[in-house]
Design a protein around this nucleic acid. Structure first.
Lengths: 356, 356
DNA sequence: GGATAGCATGACACCGGTGCCATTCGAGCG
DNA sequence: CGCTCGAATGGCACCGGTGTCATGCTATCC
């Protein structure tokens, strides 16, 4: 790798003058500039970002740590962050935290040692106090999941309100036995959504039955077991509220396998093909890209205005995207859906329509 | 940020000794080690990775540049890379290249200036010659799309063979008018898949009709237009081969809207919920995670064995995952599907079954 | 003509670790 | 007792840019 000193020697100037040419410093004679530019081209000079960052003490890099970058919800967040970071000539370093909460701390620590310009986290652990030693120097923003034992910015969805709305929606469609299916209560979003579900039941005067609440449905296998458990219950549920998109995506194949075509379904979080499934899946829409945009914007603001004060916790409203899976039986709507998403729902892709 | 010198001063030793403690150098007296460890803890010392990397001249970072990290295909690649990189204490810097080929060069250059340990690229431009100045120093591996005018490692799927198999599969099911729907020929995979499609037609003695080949179906809107164009044709197609997962995901809603429930469909590339749709979508499966694993493994091998020679181009076989969308009419299979994926295909989630 | 301002350029330190070599000191041994 | 050897530790340069200040030179003006 050729360095600035090589270029300087070749152009018979000092390294500093080469640096000036690079940084468009006007105090360089045109002839000198030309000579240096020629030397740079000839030697194929490329500045070493590592050296620059080292001197600055900061890397123009935004860290993004999420449970799983292959999950469409989190990859949408990352994509939005990237887009805005790129405008500021910043790059993005993505890390998947995985499933093991004890790995979170070492992973984030090693990320932060890069002297990141900022960090965006959707945590998997239940306590992020260990981050406090960094938060004075590095803007940290939580997304999707609020921090525990740590005072930093966060942008989360209205889990409680969304779950309440989804559950209420099912109740309005006449359901009284509604199951709650999720991954694990250790994820704060799931805990909040369970609360929303409970409060909706309470508001409607329906009993809360904990035999209708099942966890572990993150994988198709887990969802299968959850479905099997529910089917075995006395007074089987007639509807299911799925606590997150990942669960919904596991749950749907599991329901199909178990011939549970009579169960109504509302999921928290939209997901690919949700509107192409038959019935199209009614979901609480979260807009992860917006979450990402808000997070990176806050980081950039914090960098620009280190002393300014911001509201730490932001809870974003979520909307119900009404499709068809909330109706049972699905071909005889209880209420006329308001959402345009439903407009094409009779345009079914199913061969069975043609066959019947 | 407290530095090593702060710790050294506090423990009344030299910076070098602090460095030794950090690097588990055995030549440190136990008492000294204790004193230094105490000082480090008290001052909250964290090593500055930027300085370490600068000295090394290399960042323990693998760059991953793909068209769109929010695309499940590419996010699966990134996830697999990450997983293996993490085992080597390397982090991953992800960049989406977007749609503008002219942005590729500046984006990759700025990534490479970080003195990456390696770079994994799925390019969007048609010429990557500009990377040649880097390839001597930094291992570069292409995935999904082979490099043009550049001699580096690549791992791509058998686009030609896969498209040939998919098209042949449709022909075996009795289709003679098969449309090809893709994004753009400037993506080499699409060009190869079109060749595979053509050769399958030729092998079957079917005519190639370029009025059945339509591009621009990357978005739902584009897919709508593609469908509209095809429907207008004399001798409409009875089947469609979709050139990539993204197109399939756009095409399916478009077909639903256009009431094209009689069209058979095979897509190149699996995608979320493909097996939960009704009919479940028959696809050529690509295994993006494997692509990612192979790429990062090759980079690590290259780092460990700089002189060793490898076969540059690897073409991975692809398999046909037979579901139901290739059968027309779907409820009367022409042949008995071999794939287990079909086992549950009568367990339909569709309300119409219940209704009929 | 001399003082002065302004521009082009260079010298040098510094960012925070670490490789290399020197120095010091004590133990062990002939 | 003196020598050798190894262990513990320190000094210092260096990685590649860049901020700060100094220097030398020319143009300008009174």
């Amino acid at each position: 790798m050729t360095t600035m000193h090589d270029v300087a020697a070749h152009a018979k100037v000092s390294a500093k003058t080469v640096s000036r040419v690079f940084n468009d410093d006007p105090h360089v004679a045109p002839a000198t500039r030309e000579r240096i530019l020629a030397a740079m081209k000839q030697l194929n000079y490329v500045p070493n970002t590592l050296a620059q960052n080292f001197r600055t003490g900061r890397a123009p890099v935004i860290g993004v740590a999420v449970p799983d970058i292959a999950d469409p919800f989190f990859s949408s967040i990352a994509r939005a962050v990237e887009e805005i970071a790129a405008e500021q000539n910043m790059s993005v370093s993505v890390t998947s935290l995985g499933n093991d909460p004890s790995r979170e701390e070492p992973v984030l620590e090693s990320l932060l040692r890069f002297q990141l310009s900022g960090l965006i986290v959707a945590p998997i652990s239940e306590n992020q106090a260990y981050l406090s030693r960094w938060t004075d120097h590095t803007p940290v923003v939580f997304v999707d999941r609020a921090p525990t034992k740590l005072a930093v910015d966060s942008f989360v969805e209205d889990d409680l309100g969304g779950a309440h709305a989804a559950t209420t929606h099912l109740i309005r469609h006449g359901h009284t036995r509604i199951a709650f299916i999720g991954d694990t209560l250790s994820i704060p979003t799931t805990a909040n959504r369970l609360e929303g579900y409970k409060s909706a039941l309470a508001d409607a005067g329906l009993p809360y039955r904990d035999d209708l609440v099942v966890f572990g449905a993150r994988t198709v296998e887990g969802a299968r077991q959850a479905v099997a458990t529910l089917i075995g219950r006395q007074l089987e549920p007639t509807a299911v509220f799925s606590s997150d998109a990942r669960c919904s995506m596991s749950l749907i194949p599991a329901l199909q396998e178990a011939h549970q075509s009579n169960l109504a379904l509302v999921g928290f979080g939209d997901f690919p093909m949700a509107n192409a499934l038959r019935p199209a899946i009614t979901v609480v829409d979260q807009d992860p890209a917006n979450l990402g945009r808000l997070a990176i914007t806050r980081i950039l603001d914090r960098i620009a205005n280190p002393t300014k004060r911001y509201r730490r916790r932001t809870i974003l409203p979520v909307g119900l995207v009404e499709r068809a899976s909330c109706l049972v039986p699905w071909d005889s709507p209880v209420t006329e859906p308001a959402n345009g998403d439903l407009a094409s729902d009779d345009d079914t892709f199913s061969p069975l329509q043609a066959a019947s």
